[in-house]
């Protein structure tokens, strides 16, 4: 497998680069006092044209918020800092709103993103940017096993599974250079799951970049090039897919190894304890309280991200 960023031997620029991203929410502590709650801290990730990067991690680790930050659709009480670039240029909130739905496509997790007052066929057609809108829409409906008469239905007339397929179809039918899919497949029939993931792979093979946010490592392994492992609001490791194999010794971070070993098809062993909540993050390494390699330094200093064996890791002692 070639290194990220190398397409036919030529180093290309990343399509999306996120550096040291932090997201905080202003919240009420008690009464009228407000406090800042940091939910994403020091997060870095890069996506190159032609690759699928899977973002995996436990619920509450900030996966969806990363997507929302890139798209600029965080709620009003969010404060964002850090560096985000798309196509080499800084992503300002103005650029985000012009890129959203054109250059950057989003498959949201919630079916509430469909317009309740518009027929779904028209919604998908509106997303088509090239060719005959009608033809393209009909083609993608067929691809996602949606009957012809579905185009004349309103979102409330759809089953959950159908609504999800419409969301996927609507997002993937356009001409976006970057596709961000936030848990696109839960609750779908296996054939549709396969079709969706296959379609994402196809889009990246055409030179686009795809960010696949999922809790399903198995799907990530099958369709992604690289996997970013999220924990408590940051990436602990970015690894190549091939590193997730055997006993997991090619992986760099102890948490990634634990995640791999915990799969039912592997050892099905867990870790004691729990992911620290935002607002109660340890001062040092975020994983230190559950780590078997834990040393004093881990308690004092939060490790910076460093390159290791063709991937990235955030650990003082990983080798």
């Amino acid at each position: 497998m070639s290194m990220p960023g190398e397409v036919s031997g030529v180093k290309t620029e990343p399509m999306l680069s996120v550096r040291e991203l932090s997201v905080s929410f202003i919240q009420y502590a008690r009464g009228l006092k407000q406090q800042l709650l940091e939910v994403i801290n020091g997060l870095s990730i890069e996506l190159y044209p032609g690759e699928v990067v899977a973002v995996v991690g436990s619920s509450g680790s900030g996966k969806s918020l990363l997507a929302h930050a890139v798209l600029g659709i965080l709620p009003g009480n969010a404060i964002v800092s850090g560096d985000m670039q798309f196509g080499g240029e800084i992503l300002t909130s103005k650029r985000q709103s012009t890129l959203r739905g054109t250059e950057i496509a989003f498959v949201p997790q919630s079916v509430n993103y469909l317009d309740p007052l518009m027929k779904v066929g028209a919604q998908v057609k509106a997303a088509v940017k090239q060719g005959s809108k009608r033809e393209v829409q009909q083609k993608i409906f067929k691809r996602y096993h949606l009957d012809k008469n579905v185009e004349n239905l309103y979102p409330f007339q759809l089953s959950g599974g159908m609504a999800r397929r419409i969301l996927v179809a609507g997002a993937l039918v356009g001409n976006a250079r970057l596709v961000i899919a936030d848990e696109p497949t839960p609750g779908l029939h296996p054939a549709v799951v396969k079709e969706t993931l296959h379609h994402l792979r196809e889009l990246s093979d055409e030179g686009r970049a795809v960010m696949l946010i999922t809790h399903d490592i198995k799907a990530a392994l099958e369709y992604a090039d690289r996997i970013a492992v999220f924990y408590a609001g940051t990436t602990l490791e970015t690894a190549n897919v091939a590193d997730f194999s055997g006993d997991g010794s090619d992986l760099r971070h102890p948490y990634s190894k634990a995640l791999w070993k915990a799969l039912p098809q592997n050892d099905f062993v867990s870790l004691p304890g729990f992911q620290p909540a935002s607002g109660e993050l340890p001062q040092g390494c975020l994983f230190a309280p559950r780590c078997h390699m834990f040393k004093d330094l881990c308690k004092e200093k939060r490790p910076k991200e460093r390159s290791l064996r063709g991937g990235k890791v955030r650990c003082h002692y990983a080798t």
Partner: peptide, 10 residues
């Protein structure tokens, strides 16, 4: 189903 592997095993 919606949980990560470590929590699932736990």
């Amino acid at each position: 189903t919606m949980l990560d592997a470590v929590t699932q095993a736990q």
